[in-house]
Design a protein around this nucleic acid. Sequence first.
RNA 1: GGUCCGUUCGUCUAGGGGUUAGGACACAAGAUUUUCAUUCUUGUAACACGGGUUCGAUUCCCGUACGGACUACCA
Length: 511
Amino acid sequence: MRPVRVRFAPSPTGALHIGGVRTALYNFLLARKHGGTMILRIEDTDQARYVPGAEEYIIESLRWAGIQIDEGVGAGGTFAPYRQSERKQIYQQCVRQLIEDGHAYYAFDSEAELEAMRERLKNAGENQQHYNSATRMSMKNSLSLPAVEVQTRLLSEDPYVVRLKVEPGIDIHLHDLIRGEVVVNSSQIDDKVLMKSDGMPTYHLANVVDDYMMKISHVIRGEEWLPSAPLHVLLYRYFGWEKEMPAFAHLPLLLKPDGNGKLSKRDADRMGFPIFPINWKDPASGELVKGYRESGYLPEALINFLALLGWNPGTTQELFTIDELIQSFTLERINKAGARFDIQKAQWFNQQYLRALPDERLRSFLQESLTQHGLSADTQTTTKVVRVMRDRVTFPQDFWEQGRFFFLAPDQYDDQIVSKKWNEESVRGLKEISRALKATGPVAMDEIKATVDKALSGLGIKPGAVLPVLRLCMTGGSAGPDLMTTIEILGAAEAGSRIDRAIERLSIKTH
RNA sequence: GGUCCGUUCGUCUAGGGGUUAGGACACAAGAUUUUCAUUCUUGUAACACGGGUUCGAUUCCCGUACGGACUACCA
């Protein structure tokens, strides 16, 4: 078996889509599984759509996601260059060969002429409007025009393209690793442009030439390429490279969470989740689009989620380290049908991964939020907070979002609790608890509980009448970690003064 | 329109000629937690339809429907 060499080959026309990350991931997993090579090739043959910064963005995104590149742009390698715009001469040479062998030809038709041809065929009721064996002789190209004229045109400044001369009536068989046997008749394939008038190759040409030259063993790409795969097979054949042709695996698409169609940025925006791996600032509009990284997704969680979107190990295991993914991954177990994108499942994965992190890591998340808000706290406190919050969070920022009261006394109190539980009796209880707390000094949770119990039983008040408002004094709300633990972390003195503060504020409000 | 691809709970999926069609997310209920979350238990919920083949089809075959991709000098 030949060495596994796979490539992820995005075009730098913008930010990397989350579906692209999954494609890259599957390539990476296969490479690692077989001790092969993961290659990053940049397909920048469309100068009009080139977006500055996109290449760097792709590299940084993959790096963040933990998808390591062994060879290619940013990593170097023996098959350099890996940027297609730098390989023009190679394609030109290949295309010249194709023309000499009679598999390609020059075409001089203008855009208007092409449009006219399609219009003519459409009006004639043809269900395909192709530039092909049936129509090429009525167009302006090196097959239809006299040799002299062709020479003149080539030597003039007039633009021209090179087209593939597809021989009709041949069944092209393609074995896809995911879909099995696919057969397409060559009459369905048009004389695709191989070389554009600006001298750049099209995707089809560059892709085949590079995969061959870079000794790619498996082409793993999105399903949108399946219809043109037979064309690529034809190219390998015409080049005489069919024996070295890579194996194909066309991945199912990522679909919208609701409705029909493939997942788009619009859907993500509409439903409030990221579509790009990391922040993307559109250089044209200046718009900043939030990424998974900045939204608080851990790369390991995102990868785990993505891996299972269209692939499964055949067991009930859901949580995978990257090494386990590499171990279990096989192309055969990739699904055929498209997968709806479900952000809730991604969140669940994030929660699983986040809570499994050591205190130290979680503390640093909290610390970051504190710094952002101009606050500081000692290690002992942040450790306690993180421990009591760890089973309650989904994102790193939740430690702050849901635990800010550990560092900031509430300045607002939940109206519902106030109207339901704030009364003369509960305030009497609170006053007693405050007094008792301030007298005890810093103590542990069970002592606080004893103090509170004693204070209330002394007054003959039931805990149920006071505890909700006690929490209200501490956090401003009705939800949160265990109350006594919360008070322990706050400290008895702070707890006492929060009670006083609440009584002062709410009494004014109610009068 | 044409070509190609697809179709198991709401979602991701396992399974496969005879199964109580399994798991996970989500949802719901109960228990724990004097709160909320976690955790645990339980529950609701699926083989698109029609023909074949077969003793038997959700599984194999063919159609239909539905969905998707492609149909550029874009990738």
